[in-house]
Design a protein around this nucleic acid. Structure first.
Length: 607
RNA sequence: GUCUCGGUAGCUCAGCUGGAUAGAGCAAUCCCCUCCUAAGGGAUAGGUCGCAGGUUCGAAUCCUGCCCGGGACGCCA
């Protein structure tokens, strides 16, 4: 509560109407209002006037199509509407001139002073430049990855992690109060299977001989945990394999296609619990802790921050689960069939009804997921964003159904799906198999290509789109690699600043600001435009949940800088011009750094 | 079968929620370091925006139907 109030105050103080696009929009809106009043048009003024950056400089800086859009409701010619709007435009020191062009576009040219002023703004605001207040302090719950703690994160999780972390940063920059969370499935059957897997590897380590179950966790990390267990307890947990495997249901057999892997592993778990008693739970807990510690360490190395690790088990202890089921019951959406309790999801456009309590009395994962979502609502978030792997796409409808059935506002819930990343080594697709445990872990990927490249590549594309992740490209130190391309632009500015010092020159920022009007080269104008666009880019990325927009922007922006660098010199020019140009490139460096920071990529001073 | 994401230059992708002449990077051809990092830049060439209808002043973008690919659909977790 206090925190929320605090962040609201901060965001209020931080609020500056520094988005050029919005300033111009306001002018048009005022013109519409004034015209509307004067001519009694009884026009409904749209909240958001459509305005866009022009592609072509001969169309000015901004263009609006309002005149064309209003042609129909007003039954007037677009061009005459445009003329009326232009006539009513309030005086502004931003605008140089306004033209009507083509079928009725209103083209707006900014004053060069206005364009130059962005440099001062960037220098004054520093790492806050680009931040806005679109979120107005709204509290946002952002849950992502939430992989079962049964093994190390793999490259698929990496994309969710990078995306979630970037989105959290971007939304924070846009004035949202973002809370990141990882839901830890530490209560289910999978955890028992992990415990059993560790125990079996431990037995093997003790010298017992048996066939490892097909449904157990086969990764090397399990063996490591078994060895650690042995080191701690010696042979205290040892049980003769012959005794354990006696009279068990057959495991599934590839050759004969007979047997039941689920029944087989369940029997092993039951046998383990019988023999070990409390010690089984102890194995389980050390297993969860070891895996979770590994995941936390992985995230930390990857620059991904999680505010809260939310334990599924805590829901069970708190009775939240029962409350959830009661809640559905009370609202009349539960019924009994085949000994199980079903949720009538079909009442809410889901394909079929879903089980919440199995016939054996245990709750399904869906049930605890609902309890978890109830908790999210009860904690009072304005927006709840779930980032799921695309393989969970089937859960969207039932989750929304469940939330609605519990009586919560579904409109506040936003489920985003992240597609898998397909790894390539050049042209070669990297084969992965979860079954055999031979998947590439996130850690391996980070070690191979580095954190910067990994973070950037993961968020280069829209999240619901397939991503081809080329390891060779991510490692290459050439202009094909967008990460290096952008970082190089940053390093180049730093290098110029070093040269400045080496030549015994002093930079004077105040003089630079005074002389900004001397920045008239086309490459400089292009950079000024790009700088003033940055806050708009953040706004778009935050509102659409699309950090890739920033990645694309930075690429283009770095290009603008490299062009400038090649065409002009900064140090060997008259002093006044030098100060102005240095101010410009410091602003460029600042924006590169700010943008990279949002994506979790470093901005090196030297390469 | 149902749902979902995609199909834009030879390749990988942008395209700002309907705008003006379709945009980058790679690959191809040619060019630019006596100069702050060539990890850079310039030029040329490259297109039936999957196909067919529809909506309108205007469609790569929205709607419908097909075609082709990726993925998802359990009393699994």
């Amino acid at each position: 509560m206090l925190h929320s109030l605090f962040s609201w105050i901060i965001s209020f103080l931080n609020h500056r109407p520094n988005i050029m696009k919005n300033n111009v929009k306001e002018l048009i809106k005022k013109a519409l209002i004034q015209w509307n009043e004067q001519d009694q048009l009884s026009l409904t003024i749209p909240d958001d006037v459509h305005l866009e950056r022009t592609k072509d400089a001969s169309h000015g800086d901004f263009a609006s199509n309002v005149a064309m859009a209003l042609a129909k409701p007003l039954k007037q010619k677009p061009r005459s509407i445009a003329e009326a709007i232009v006539k009513h435009l309030p005086a502004s020191d931003l605008v140089d001139k306004v033209e009507i062009a083509g079928p009725g576009f209103i083209n707006i040219y900014l004053k060069s002073d206005t364009q130059h002023a962005v440099v001062k703004t960037v220098l004054a605001e520093g790492d806050q430049f680009g931040h806005g207040n679109q979120g107005n302090g709204q509290r946002v719950m952002l849950e992502f990855v939430s992989a079962n703690p049964t093994g190390p994160l793999h490259v698929g999780h990496g994309r969710s992690a990078a995306y979630g972390a970037a989105l959290a940063q971007v939304m924070s920059a846009a004035g949202y109060d973002v809370h990141t969370e990882y839901y830890v499935n530490d209560a289910g059957r999978q955890m028992a299977i992990l415990a059993a897997s560790i125990w079996l590897r431990y037995l093997a380590h003790c010298g017992e001989v048996f066939t490892f179950p097909s449904n157990g966790y086969k990764g090397d990390y399990v063996v490591g945990m078994a060895e650690a267990l042995f080191a701690d307890v010696g042979e205290d947990y040892r049980m003769p394999a012959a005794q354990l495997f006696q009279d068990l249901p057959q495991d599934f057999d590839e050759e004969s296609k007979t047997g039941d892997k689920e029944a087989h592993i369940d029997a092993i778990i039951a046998g383990g619990k019988d023999f070990l008693g409390d010690r089984f739970q102890a194995i389980l807990q050390r297993g969860v802790k070891a895996v979770l510690d590994d995941i936390k360490d992985d995230f930390e190395g990857f620059g991904v921050h999680i505010d809260e690790w939310f334990s599924e088990e805590s829901l069970l202890h708190s009775e939240a689960l029962h409350q959830t089921i009661d809640r559905l019951e009370k609202n009349g959406y539960l019924y009994e069939k085949d000994g199980a309790r079903w949720f009538r999801a079909t009442d809410f456009d889901d394909e079929k009804d879903r089980v919440v309590v199995r016939s054996n009395g245990t709750h399904t994962y869906f049930a605890s997921d609902l309890a978890y979502h109830a908790s999210k609502y009860e904690r009072g978030f304005d927006q709840i964003i779930d980032i799921f792997g695309a393989d969970h796409h089937g859960y969207v409808a039932r989750m929304e159904a469940g939330v609605a059935a519990m009586g919560f506002d579904v409109a506040r819930l936003n489920i985003l799906l992240v597609q898998f990343a397909i790894l390539f080594r050049g042209k070669e697709r990297v084969q992965m198999s979860t079954r055999s445990g031979s998947f590439v872990t996130l850690r391996q990927l980070r070690e191979e290509v580095g954190n910067d490249a990994a973070r950037f590549f993961y968020v280069m594309r829209k999240c619901e789109q397939h991503l081809d992740f080329d390891l060779e490209l991510a490692k290459s130190k050439t202009n094909e690699n967008p990460v290096y391309y952008i970082q190089y632009a940053h390093a180049r500015v730093c290098s110029v600043m070093r040269q400045l010092g080496e030549k015994g020159l002093k930079h004077d920022m105040a003089l630079g600001n005074e002389g900004l009007s001397s920045l008239v080269e086309p490459e400089e104008v292009a950079l000024l435009r790009a700088l003033s666009r940055y806050p708009e880019v953040i706004e778009a990325a935050a509102l659409n949940h699309e950090p890739h927009i920033i990645a694309n922007y930075l690429r283009d922006f770095a290009n603008d800088f490299h062009v400038y660098y090649n065409a002009h010199r900064f140090l060997d020019v008259p002093e006044a011009l030098r100060h102005a140009r240095i101010n410009l490139i410091i602003a460029v460096r600042q924006v590169l750094k700010n943008g990279l920071q949002l994506l979790g990529v470093s901005a090196p001073e030297k390469m």
